[in-house]
Simulated scan of single mutants.
Amino acid sequence: MREFSEDYLERTREGMWDDSREALEALALDSHERILDVGCGTGELSRVLAEETPETTDVVGCDADPTLLAVASAGDDPVTAVAGDALRLPFPDDSFDLVVCQALLINLPDPATAVAEFARVSSDLVAAVEPDNAAVEIDSSVESEGNLERRARRAYLDGVGTDVSLGADARDAFEEADIAVVETRQYDHVRTIEPPYCEGALEAARRKATGAGLADDRETMLEGELTETEYDDLRSAWRTMGRDVIDQMGAREYQREETVPFFVTVGRVRSTDRTSWVDGSTSTPNDV
């Protein structure tokens, strides 16, 4: 799977659920005893799950990257973290009654295989919180920023080997793994930049002005149909846009709103005999 740095995960996940946690209602968090967060990274979702569940609920994070796990399990609000591969989870069958992931399936070449593994270790629910990165919307006071971001995003998506625009289509992976989809609910994560500017916003502007962000993604972008000449032209325009952002920041005029649509898909695991639901009912997927 694709790998991410601690800074990237904290930047993209931190504060995601600060505005509303309504989209998590279908997970029935107050009714579970043991919850597993697969691909927990630095533990942002794990901490949200712990906040939304009774004190008696055990929340465990699992990730393949020991560096990220060290961050998740440190600090004032540590996560109980276990090293493990999402495709070969280090837990016996039915170890949890809810297994959930956030922005994990979009980075796997075969999401259904991972979902099936989630179902193996869950006795009840499986859930995935996945973005549609192709539907991100940008509203910026710098006129060129939205268009350039769309161009860069299209090129990046074209070069990525996994479906990073999975979004609501995560339900297909659930159905392929023989899990009945209970509900899919959309949650729009809105990130706003406005004065006074935090250090993260200032650093993002500097990276635009130098083209560092596109440089990090150059190899991926060139895996698609984008040519090197087109990439160079895009990066040049990107740097110009970045300087405009910095100028507007200096005048305290820069404002930006980014909306990333996430889809929370929840499914119920079948019992081991594959003939009834774990809750004892005899419903079929078509009845849900």
Rank of each mutant, 00 (worst) to 15 (best):
R2I: 14
E10H: 11
D18E: 11
D19Q: 13
L27A: 11
D30L: 03
S31F: 06
E33R: 14
G39M: 04
G41K: 09
E44K: 04
V48F: 15
V48I: 14
V48H: 03
L49A: 05
A64I: 15
A70F: 12
A70V: 07
V71Q: 14
S73F: 03
A74I: 10
A86G: 11
A86E: 06
R88H: 15
L89N: 07
L89T: 04
P90T: 01
P92D: 13
D93L: 00
L98P: 04
L105P: 08
L105W: 05
I106D: 07
I106Y: 00
N107I: 02
P111W: 06
P111A: 04
E117W: 08
S123P: 13
S123Q: 02
L125A: 12
V126M: 09
P131W: 02
I138T: 14
S140A: 06
S141H: 01
E143G: 10
E145M: 12
E149A: 09
R150W: 01
R150I: 13
R151M: 11
R153H: 12
T162K: 05
D163Y: 07
L166N: 02
A170L: 12
R171F: 05
D172K: 04
A173M: 04
F174D: 07
F174W: 05
F174M: 01
E176M: 01
V182I: 14
E183W: 08
T184A: 06
R185L: 08
I193A: 12
E199L: 01
G200N: 11
A204K: 11
R206T: 15
G211T: 03
D217C: 01
R218I: 10
E219M: 08
L222I: 13
E223F: 09
G224W: 14
D232Q: 05
R239S: 04
R239P: 08
R243F: 05
I246V: 01
Y254V: 00
T259W: 06
T259A: 03
V260A: 02
P261T: 12
P261E: 04
F263G: 02
V264T: 09
T265P: 04
V269C: 06
V269L: 04
V269R: 00
S281D: 15
S283W: 09
T284I: 05
P285F: 06
P285A: 08
